[in-house]
Simulated assay, not measured.
Amino acid sequence: MTIAVAGVTKEYKRGDRIFKAVDGVSLIMESGDFIAVIGKSGSGKSTLLNIIAGLTVPTSGNVLVDGESILTYSDSAMSDYRSNSLGYIPQGQSTLADLTVLDNVRLPFHLSGRKGDSASRALTLLEQVGIADLKGNYPKHLSGGELKRVAIARALINDPDILIADEPTSDLDKQTTAEVLALLQSISKDGKAVLIVTHDLAALEYTTRNFTMVSGVLTQQAKIQMI
């Protein structure tokens, strides 16, 4: 799958002024990419992710999935795109408190109307992210890093082609940050496209391409080998 962000701008009105949260952004993602967009809070990173996810409609420009505009999708086609083609890891804690780890991971499978053995697939994913032993625990018993691993497994349950994550290492310590970034890197090496937006420069050690975002403007940076 190829996702092409083509000249996307998102404007908001603030009083008499027009504010561009995203300003003429173009970006192409393909299988095996691990892309980081680095920027400070308020730079437009999350807005860009929401546009790619079809949660925010751009003022101008387009998002193309294998050449087809998601702006033309019907409600059912958009739902299918979000459920099956795209895995989204939101910022912050997003698990449901009254579900076990296993059931939190299984939930999107059933919400999408799929049939099959979701428990077996969810357990395989929990093994992949290294927390299968916590399958029966509830979110309140997990650390921040463990909750992030649950979110990653849940985003993968429907086998999406692209995984996008909003600040996946926020509030994590250095070791856990490295573990989560290495996990995302391994997912990209397995053939999925991974896009993260972050302010954490540690991500640059793991990615295949890096961009900075300042005042809504996206700029590609040379790949730097971290020492």
Rank of each mutant, 00 (worst) to 15 (best):
M1E: 13
G7Y: 02
E11F: 09
E11H: 13
E11Q: 11
Y12S: 00
D16A: 14
R17E: 15
A21V: 12
V22E: 01
G24M: 09
I28V: 15
M29F: 11
I35W: 06
K45E: 05
K45Y: 02
T47F: 00
L48W: 00
L49M: 09
T56G: 01
S60D: 13
V63E: 02
L64W: 08
V65L: 14
Y73R: 06
S74K: 11
D75V: 11
D80L: 08
L86T: 06
G87C: 04
S94L: 12
L99C: 07
V101I: 07
L102H: 00
D103L: 05
V105I: 03
V105G: 00
P108E: 03
L111F: 12
R114C: 04
R114T: 06
D117M: 08
S120G: 12
R121I: 14
T124Y: 10
L125Q: 02
Q128L: 10
I131H: 03
D133N: 15
K135T: 09
G144C: 09
R149Y: 05
A153H: 04
R154N: 02
R154C: 07
L156R: 04
L156M: 08
I157D: 01
D159F: 13
D159K: 15
P160T: 01
A165S: 12
S170A: 15
Q175L: 13
L181S: 04
L183V: 04
S186K: 15
S186P: 10
I187G: 02
V194K: 04
L195M: 10
I196T: 06
T198F: 00
D200G: 11
L201M: 15
T207S: 11
T208E: 03
N210R: 11
Q220C: 10
A222K: 14
K223D: 10
I224D: 08
Q225I: 15
Q225T: 14
I227R: 14
